[in-house]
Nucleic acid binder design. Sequence first.
DNA 1: TTGTAAGCGTTATCAC
DNA 2: GTGATAACGCTTACAA
Lengths: 346, 346
Amino acid sequence: MPKRSSGDGNPHSGSARMRDVAARAGVSTMTVSRALNEPGKVSEEMRERVLRAVREIGYLPNHLAGSLSSNRSTTIGLIVPSIDNSIYTQTVKGLSEVLKSSGFQLMIAESGYDPNEEEELITVFLSHRVSGLVLHSTEHTPQAAEKIRKSGIPVVENGNIPREPLDMVVSFSNYDASYAMTMHLGRLGYRKIAFASLYSVHNDRSQDRLQGYHAALRQLGLDPDPRIVLETERGLAAGAEVMARVVQSVPEVDALFCAGDVLVVGALFECQKRGWAVPGRIALASFDDVDLLRHVSPSVTTLRLPRYDIGERTARILLSRIMDGAEHLRGSVVDLKFELIQREST
Amino acid sequence: MPKRSSGDGNPHSGSARMRDVAARAGVSTMTVSRALNEPGKVSEEMRERVLRAVREIGYLPNHLAGSLSSNRSTTIGLIVPSIDNSIYTQTVKGLSEVLKSSGFQLMIAESGYDPNEEEELITVFLSHRVSGLVLHSTEHTPQAAEKIRKSGIPVVENGNIPREPLDMVVSFSNYDASYAMTMHLGRLGYRKIAFASLYSVHNDRSQDRLQGYHAALRQLGLDPDPRIVLETERGLAAGAEVMARVVQSVPEVDALFCAGDVLVVGALFECQKRGWAVPGRIALASFDDVDLLRHVSPSVTTLRLPRYDIGERTARILLSRIMDGAEHLRGSVVDLKFELIQREST
DNA sequence: TTGTAAGCGTTATCAC
DNA sequence: GTGATAACGCTTACAA
């Protein structure tokens, strides 16, 4: 019962197998395998004979079979809350570039900010026997944590620095960044600092930013005012709406710190439309240094976050664990620093 | 020589196998396999017995083994020119959402606008035995085309509508879109229409946009002027630079069509800085309807492209081929339409 | 409806 | 340095 015969119309059905290469080269499959994966362990002559046969036949190794047999895969699973968030793209690029150079592939999925969905995706990735996992969120179901632990594969969390990491962490601290910006505003003399962030439900980044803000207020001796602490959705329209709402409900406000996405740009446009001078009437600060903020007028004070570096370091640390078995890296936390960029808006 | 014993420290080494589940449930592995994959083919009692054993043991199926054995995988390969281009994110989201609902996973890689790199990635994906391939570029090496053909897997190109598709196509026409916008500018009375695009080397989208522009000029009876046709890199700074260059070298220019990325925003800022009225001194039009263009002042005339739909349709057509064997879809071309949004800038 | 046996394409192991 | 053989964990094909 040759299975092969059944799959005539199937994908990949025509691909040559290693044994075809072996037959053509007049060697065993092991020699082919070695010539391809550990060229040093094979004589020059054999190597060339094999490689010629590979070319002639148009042989393509089957990673599935290789991974099954060797119990090693070359795939990494990445779960982000939302794929269409431009914030992550730099990190994904950093990850992708380093992984590619080591022959690893990225499997990507989005959790939609839902820990249960994340758990489901982790399960799927584990089924695919990924060699490592990268999670942007640092909030997980207990079951997810348990599955990961049980699997034994290395994990990097990289959206924030959690109190209780699953394993490794490569990130900046949302708390520290938010604290730094709020302190900066306070030192510049602003006394009534409003704070806008994205919804913090199942979003520990937002939560930490809020806490950083509050900690700085305390340090500055400023009273918190719930009327000027807002959560909203993503987008320019949301930023504009927040701006209008804050100024109208609490006219004494003299600064707005938009701790998420491009909210600040919407806010700035709203100011321009209403004729509110920035920073004269109200100062504006933001969280991520997107290109736009340097080009608008006034240019916007913001935090430069190591988005690309996070991806790059994440990949490197993961590869160390996977390829070099660097067990001493288990549980390590890399706190990449951010930079505060003072511009015209404050 | 039990392979298993060697892998004690290895990832996934502790995971239970189907045979463990079978033993626990007191059935054969085939019954476990059926209970999991074709529940209808198993009696209620068996199904429950198996599922309980699965839960108790914490069994996680091994997709690698399943795919190898069945000669079917649940992964799709996606190659984009550059991951950090926000243009693709909506398409990736569309793809991802549909694929996820069918249990497929996305493997993503970037070619860096290099066909040879793309070929390399295609090879890797084929090695991973992806069930389908999505390519943003429509320019490929002959070897890449040959490998894909030989593999027999379905492919969708979705960055443009090529003259000679590899297989299926889901896209809008860059030529048509560019033609439409240029005609629109002509009909509004603009006579000296400049054109800025991203570098067109190995970028057939840019090339087609340029051709659409030229075709429209002919149709409008306007003479092409190489001095006002420019290629540049991505980014706001590039847009600003193009704007300044065009107006200073050819003062008669009365419109600028930025056919790429966020160039137009840089151009608009430059106009504001220089005090050039838009559209009084010069009209501005763009290619992609990013959120920003609706919020700047003046708001910018642009093309609304079906980015998300492209991803969604791509996934659907691919899944039809893979799961339903819909061979009649082979070679089909889906030309998704775009929409021209007239705003204040023209 | 369930089970048996063979095989998917590769690599680990051990012998030469 | 090279090869024979037995896995890897699952599904196909067929038998019961």
